[in-house]
Structure formats: structure tokens, C-alpha cells
């Protein structure tokens, strides 16, 4: 975890054009963030906090108005560099329907490598292994519109894996899914990170999804307001409340019960409560 993969320095971004003398409301304000190779970073924030904009800076679809973004040594300051960066950083969006381009699952997974000009035999290999790694190999000849949301999202993830990017940025990949689909997708993302060593940037507004990340970044009004390990960040319950953010349910329960320290997930919660109740649980 020592190599910086994505380096964002004092980045500003505006959606409205800059008018003379008057500064428009920035979507991102003086954001600096380093993402290291192999890391799992969760970016949290409520709607309009700038987290999706930050995601789009990471793969150079947006260029910062001020400040710099450097990915694997390449600055995102031109179209050509943007193309190079997108070969290293893949992206998965919220709505699975709007990012699948082909009428057959395997053709869709092949779309990325085809664009990169990879040799046909090599594409076949990559597509098969990508589909296997997201457990969608049996569905390779299906039509995407017959799949469930979670399955479609896993196909989209396979599409990025097949491009063999170093990093994958997921922009609220579970927001439109049911709880089961959400679990499927989250399991897949963790597997990518642990087994294949792919750097993951997960944009989400579900606190529970951020708990297992290596590092949590919290955004509000276009600024990064705090960053740290999940345990560090979620222990500041009052601070998060000030910014109208929830904490994971278990953390909230233990906090309300006045238990010291930070409890992150259900298992920990059960253990802590069990200890207090004298092993009755």
C-alpha cells in the first residue's frame, strides 16, 4: 500500500460555467485525496455532497477546474491522457440498465477489451475469467434484460475486470438494488479487492457498506470533512450527526446505550452486549 495510484491535489470543480467576477457554487472545493494501490476506500456523503463528482475526477471523465489529478503518474489534463487513464481506472454506475451496451452478456463484457484493441483469443479468455470471478459464467449467453439488478451490476463489474484496470470506481452500485442484490454485489467487490488486488473506490450512502473498507472518506458540501479507518470515523457519532449523516446501526445502538468504544457490525455488537449482560447471550 505504498504506491500512490490516484493523487488528487486541491481540486475544484464547477458544474455551472464561471461568470465574470462571480464565482459559481463549486461541486468540489479544494479536495485533496491520495488513493494507494490495493486499497479499499469508501467515500460517504449524502446527496449533493460531491461524491459522484469526485468519482468522475478519478477516471478523468471530468477534468478539475483548478488543482490536479494524477493517475499512476499520468496527469488528467488532456483528452489523450484521459483515454490512457480510463485504461487504468474502470467505473461502474448506479443504474445497471444504462451501462450495458450489448444484447448478450458475454458480448457486453467483451465491449471494453474490444475497445482497447485486444486480440480476439485473449478477449475470449479475459471474458470467461471475468465472468467466472463474478459468478456469472453460466449466464454468459443470456440477454441482459432478463437478469436481476444484482446480476446486471455484476455483469457491469465483469466488464471492468475484463479491461484489466488497476482500479475500479463504483458510483453507488447498490442504490437501485434489493437487499439480496446488494449483498451479491458487495461480496463481489470485496472479492475483487482481496483476491485480485484491484484498488476499489466505493461511492455510497449506505454506512454499513463502508464498515469493511480500509479507509473511509466523508464528504459534505463539496469538501472532504474527515477521513480515517472506519473505526476512527464512526466513533465520532456526534460529528457525523452534525453533518446529517447516519452511523451504522450497531454503532448507533451501542452509542445510545452509552457503551464506550466503537462497535461496527452486528457480530461485534452481539459480543459486546453479551459481555455486558454477563454471558447471557
Amino acid at each position: 500500500m505504498e504506491n500512490k495510484l490516484i493523487e488528487i491535489k486541491n481540486a475544484y470543480y464547477f458544474y455551472d460555467p464561471e461568470e465574470e467576477g462571480k464565482e459559481p457554487e463549486p461541486a468540489l472545493k479544494n479536495v485533496s485525496l491520495d488513493i494507494y494501490e490495493g486499497e479499499f476506500v469508501a467515500v460517504l456523503g449524502h446527496n449533493g455532497s460531491g461524491k459522484s463528482t469526485l468519482a468522475k475526477l478519478c477516471n478523468a471523465v471530468f477534468e478539475p477546474a483548478r488543482g490536479t489529478v494524477t493517475v499512476d503518474g499520468i496527469p488528467s489534463d488532456s483528452e489523450e491522457n484521459g483515454d490512457l487513464i480510463r485504461r487504468k481506472v474502470g467505473m461502474v454506475f448506479q443504474n445497471p440498465d444504462n451501462q450495458i451496451v450489448a444484447t448478450i452478456v458475454e458480448d457486453d463484457v467483451a465491449f471494453g477489451p474490444e475497445n482497447l484493441g485486444v486480440d480476439p483469443a485473449e478477449i475470449r479468455k479475459r471474458v470467461d475469467s471475468a465472468l467466472k470471478s463474478v459468478n456469472m459464467y453460466e449466464y454468459r449467453e443470456r440477454q441482459p434484460h432478463n437478469l436481476s439488478g444484482g446480476q446486471k451490476q455484476r455483469v457491469a463489474i465483469a466488464g471492468v475486470i475484463a479491461m484489466q484496470t488497476k482500479c475500479i470506481v463504483l458510483d453507488e452500485p447498490t442504490a437501485m438494488l434489493d437487499p439480496m442484490g446488494r449483498d451479491e454485489v458487495m461480496d463481489t467487490i470485496h472479492k475483487l479487492n482481496k483476491e485480485m488486488g484491484i484498488t476499489v473506490v466505493l461511492i455510497t450512502h449506505f454506512m454499513d457498506e463502508a464498515v469493511k473498507a480500509d479507509r473511509v472518506v466523508i464528504m459534505d458540501k463539496g469538501e472532504i470533512i474527515t477521513t480515517g479507518t472506519p473505526r476512527e470515523v464512526f466513533s465520532k457519532v456526534d460529528f457525523l450527526r452534525e453533518h446529517k449523516l447516519d452511523v451504522p446501526q450497531s454503532t448507533e445502538l451501542c452509542n445510545a446505550l452509552g457503551i464506550k468504544g466503537c462497535v461496527l457490525d452486528t457480530d461485534e455488537c452481539v459480543e459486546v452486549l453479551g459481555r455486558i449482560l454477563g454471558g447471557a447471550v
Binding site: 477516471n59 483515454d83 467483451a110 477489451p113 474490444e114
Partner: peptide, 13 residues
């Protein structure tokens, strides 16, 4: 984001 830049240099699986 998936590097589609038009037809040039594309291969087919």
C-alpha cells in the same frame, strides 16, 4: 468510461 472512442482500433471477440 469503457474506452469507446469510435470504431478505430477496435477488435471483435
Amino acid at each position: 468510461c469503457r474506452c469507446y472512442t469510435g470504431g478505430d482500433g477496435r477488435t471483435r471477440m
